[in-house]
């Protein structure tokens, strides 16, 4: 079996499995441990506060947007493109169609998927410059903050280079860009449940916990 087949086959399923099972496990562990140790959260739990906080923070309708509109606009755009582009881009859908699952769904126009990929990259560069240029963020940041930003951006960079064959052919990088894209994508999926990227699910729990705490005290949630 050659490396590409390995990356497209077993490694892909393993990384998707680690990603999905990992995130579900994180959610389950939160629920189990909070039942035992965060009783105050469950004693006061009300859906109205939880839903209100999601409505405010999943979309740009909160006070942080008013405080720092540029950062927030870019952060929301970053997350939107980061989630939508990989799920609805044509090459990925073709992969699902030809897989055992034979899933098929409508793809984004290629041009739009391209722009979304470039948006992720441009915003990732902005986030990196922001982190490097602000004394505050340099003070707060650890190595993992930089590494995870790179790990997040790499699948998008390699996707663009692979689709457009920007590096040409006849060289090691150019010839293997698709393989590199798959491997970097798998790397990102695998690290999500074990790092701060676990905010993919823990965001909801953290916001809910604070919404309940603030809701019962009649603070702004």
């Amino acid at each position: 079996m050659d490396v590409l087949a390995l990356a497209e086959g077993p490694l892909l399923w393993i990384s998707l499995g680690v990603f999905a099972v990992g995130l579900v496990t994180r959610a389950a562990l939160f629920l189990v441990e909070s039942r035992e140790k965060d009783k105050i959260f469950w004693q006061h739990f009300k859906w109205k506060w939880v839903l209100a906080t999601m409505a405010k923070w999943l979309v740009p309708a909160n006070r942080t947007v008013a405080k720092d509109p540029v950062f927030c606009a870019l952060a929301y755009a970053f997350h939107f493109c980061l989630i939508v582009a990989p799920i609805w881009c044509l090459p990925h859908i073709i992969y699902w169609e030809t897989s055992r699952l034979a899933w098929s769904f409508t793809a984004l126009p290629d041009g739009l998927a391209d722009w979304m990929t470039l948006a992720v990259l441009a915003i990732a560069v902005y986030l990196l410059i922001r982190r490097l240029s602000s004394p505050d963020l340099r003070y707060l940041s650890t190595a993992s903050d930089y590494v995870l930003l790179v790990i997040t951006a790499l699948p998008f960079l390699t996707a663009y280079l692979s689709v457009h064959q920007s590096l040409g052919t006849g060289n090691l990088l150019g010839d293997n860009m698709q393989l590199i894209h798959i491997l970097t994508g798998e790397l990102m999926l695998v690290v999500v449940p074990f790092t701060k990227l676990s905010h993919a699910v823990l965001f909801f729990f953290s916001r809910a916990a604070t919404a309940v705490e603030f809701g019962r005290r009649e603070y702004s949630i």
């Binding site: 940041s141 676990s198 823990l202 729990f205």
Partner: peptide, 24 residues
């Protein structure tokens, strides 16, 4: 042990160091 629950553990882990809290 009994006081560091799911909330505190998650909070310590997921902070992305975005810095939005600084000037508040």
């Amino acid at each position: 042990k009994p006081r560091v629950g799911a909330r505190v553990k998650s909070w310590l882990e997921i902070c992305t160091k975005c810095g939005q809290c600084a000037d508040t």
